[in-house]
Simulated scan of single mutants.
Amino acid sequence: MPLLPYARYSQLLLRGLLVLPLALAVAIPARAAEVWVITDSQHPVQTPPGATLIELDQTARIEAELTAQLPSEPGRAAAIVQQRIKEGGTDLQRRIARAYQGITDAWSLSVTTIPAVVVDRRYVVYGDTDVERALARIEAYRRANP
Rank of each mutant, 00 (worst) to 15 (best):
V45E: 02
Q42G: 02
A134H: 08
A64T: 04
L66P: 05
S108H: 04
L66D: 07
D57R: 05
R76T: 15
R137L: 09
R133N: 05
P71T: 10
A64N: 03
E132I: 02
I38G: 02
Y126I: 05
T52A: 04
L14Y: 04
S108W: 00
R84F: 12
A27S: 13
W36F: 08
A77P: 07
A97D: 11
V111I: 15
Y141T: 09
S10W: 01
V125S: 07
R94S: 10
H43D: 00
N145I: 00
E73I: 04
W107C: 00
S10C: 01
V45Q: 02
P115Q: 11
V117T: 15
A30D: 06
P115F: 07
V45K: 03
Q11V: 11
P44Y: 07
R8A: 12
L13K: 14
V118G: 05
G127T: 09
D40C: 04
M1D: 13
L18R: 08
P5L: 11
S10Y: 01
T112A: 02
R137C: 00
S72P: 03
A136E: 14
V119A: 10
T59G: 03
R137S: 05
L24A: 15
R142V: 15
A140Q: 14
G16S: 06
Q58Y: 02
R142Y: 15
E34A: 07
V37T: 05
P71K: 09
E63W: 04
T104I: 06
D120T: 10
A33Y: 15
T67E: 13
G89F: 08
V45M: 03
Q69W: 02
G50I: 11
I80A: 04
V119Q: 12
P21E: 14
A116W: 06
D130Y: 01
I103C: 02
I85N: 13
V45R: 05
P29S: 13
Y100G: 00
L56M: 06
P5T: 13
R133H: 07
P74W: 04
L53C: 12
R61H: 15
D57F: 05
D40T: 06
L56W: 07
D91N: 08
L109V: 03
L56F: 08
V35C: 12
L70M: 14
W107H: 08
I138V: 14
R137A: 08
R61M: 13
L4I: 08
Y141F: 15
A78V: 11
V37A: 05
R31T: 13
T113F: 03
P29G: 14
A97W: 04
A134S: 13
L56V: 05
V19I: 15
